[in-house]
Design a protein around this nucleic acid. Structure first.
Length: 411
RNA sequence: GCGGACGUAGCUCAGCUGGUAGAGCGCCAGGUUGUGGUCUUGGAUGUCGUGGGUUCGAGCCCCAUCGUUCGCCCCA
């Protein structure tokens, strides 16, 4: 195996890809702050139990996709496959359940041992938002509105639609699950092999099967809305009206379910058709039982996560950097003076660069290639008059500028 | 984990029925030792993804393997 080849499903972020990636993160962070979120950063690995106990034992994420290993102390460690469990663990560990609500934004790498595809990697990156300690549907609506705001700021809201659904509360979900099992059991022979397996393990998953035969059977399957308790129904209706108040367009889609077990009530997905099979771009839901299940007090929560790589593929080219000023000494003897001028520009917050080698012509070529907006030519003749030559690369114009006026001119 | 396609220079790719590798772009240097972009002249560069096999001979055929990609599964 070639050791210089990156590990399968990982990638280097360089050049425009890096620019896109960080543009997504910075945009999301800026928007999340508008909604009152604070930045958190939790470890990329946790005790295995943080994920194993919380994500649910029916999901592949836990059963076959985790990077789990024993460290040298014999502790079972897992590279985080998602962000919510770690944030909840941190909430408990730091005693923050006393100071609720907490509104959190995070960004960072996640790890899942999956078969890589475009928009799906083994080390991938997510941005995410969590609102902990708020049980009101207003919090759900605000979280979704923030996600929508991020997508708008990234300029991709036109390619994305929001699907929402409710999974109800515990009682609603149990009743619904039973109704689904009863319905699909009647047609078990007609179900796809995958869905027959899902019938036993995770019947809700049959609802979003891609198999044509399954889709026909799903069409007249029972709908969660008919199995909601009075409370769950009130929550659901209030969420929809709040979304309208936040001016977020949405489609009700009773087939939306969630992959991870900790979700209840609200489930939503922003989807696009522009990324092939990886159509989900930002998704989340409510997880009221999670913190308690991890050993903390009962703390309701709502949140979402988005795949940065997927967002980065959807956005246009990120804004190009402004262009630096290149300082070019005319001959080695001028280098010392050039360095002084270079630093004075940087002190004045002007992006400035100097080449390490090459004759004058080479350095000018270099400045042009890296997209410098201007060059400052440091030469004996002008210097004798307390000045340098400033050449604007776009139009080739050049003029002599007094050293004292240089920074002001280039700002 | 399952099924299909693809791996040739830094990049995009060509390479005939198997006869020992090419183009464009980029890169380096000169034309121009105080002036870039355009132009022009010249130059360098490949474990043909890797390992086996068939053959007198393999970039091309066969097998395996690694990686990428499309779909399934799963999921952001």
């Amino acid at each position: 195996m070639n050791p210089l080849q990156p590990v399968r499903g990982t990638q280097d972020l360089i050049g425009e890809e890096a620019a896109r990636h960080f543009h997504v993160v910075e945009t999301a962070r800026r928007v999340a702050r508008l909604y009152g979120c604070r930045d958190w950063a939790t470890p990329v690995f946790e005790m295995t139990s943080v994920f194993a106990r919380t994500l649910g034992d029916t999901s592949d994420v836990v059963t076959k996709e985790m990077y789990t290993f024993e460290d040298r102390g014999g502790e079972s460690i897992t590279l985080r496959p998602e962000g919510t469990a770690g944030i909840c663990r941190a909430l408990i560990s730091n005693g923050l359940t006393q100071t609720l609500p907490q509104k959190v934004f995070y960004a960072g790498p996640m790890f899942r041992y999956e078969r890589p595809q475009k928009g799906r990697y083994r080390q991938f990156h997510q941005i995410g938002l969590e609102i902990l300690g708020a049980a009101e549907p207003l919090a759900d609506a605000e979280a979704i509105a923030c996600g929508w705001h991020v997508l708008r700021e990234l300029g991709i809201s036109g390619e994305v639609t929001l699907n929402i659904n409710t999974l109800g509360d515990r009682a609603s979900r149990d009743a619904y699950r039973n109704a689904l099992v009863e319905h699909f059991s009647k047609y078990e022979a007609e179900l796809s092999a995958d869905s027959r397996a899902r019938l036993a393990r995770n019947p809700l998953r049959i609802l979003d099967s891609k198999d044509a035969g399954d889709i026909r059977l799903v069409a007249d399957a029972p709908v969660i809305q008919d199995h909601l308790t009075a409370e769950a129904r009130t929550f659901w209706e209030r969420l929809k009206s709040a979304l309208a108040e936040f001016d977020v367009p949405f489609t009700e889609n009773p087939r939306i379910v969630r992959g991870l077990d900790y979700y209840n009530h609200t489930a939503f997905e922003f989807v696009t058709s522009a990324l092939g099979a990886q159509g989900t771009v930002l998704a989340g839901g409510r997880y009221d039982g999670l913190v308690e299940q991890m050993g903390g007090p009962p703390v309701p929560g709502i949140g979402w996560a988005a795949g940065i790589e997927r967002l980065a593929m959807l956005i246009g080219p990120p804004p190009a950097p402004g262009g630096a000023v290149a300082v070019i000494p005319m001959g080695d003897a001028m280098e010392a003076r050039a360095i002084g001028i270079l630093q004075s520009l940087r002190e004045a917050r002007i992006e400035a660069e100097i080449g390490y080698r090459g004759n004058f012509k080479r350095r000018l070529e270099r400045a042009n290639k890296v997209g410098a907006r201007a060059v400052v030519i440091v030469a004996e003749d002008e210097l004798a008059r307390g000045a340098v030559a400033v050449k604007t690369l776009a139009d080739g114009s050049q003029r002599e500028v007094k050293l004292a006026e240089l920074a002001a001119l280039l700002s």
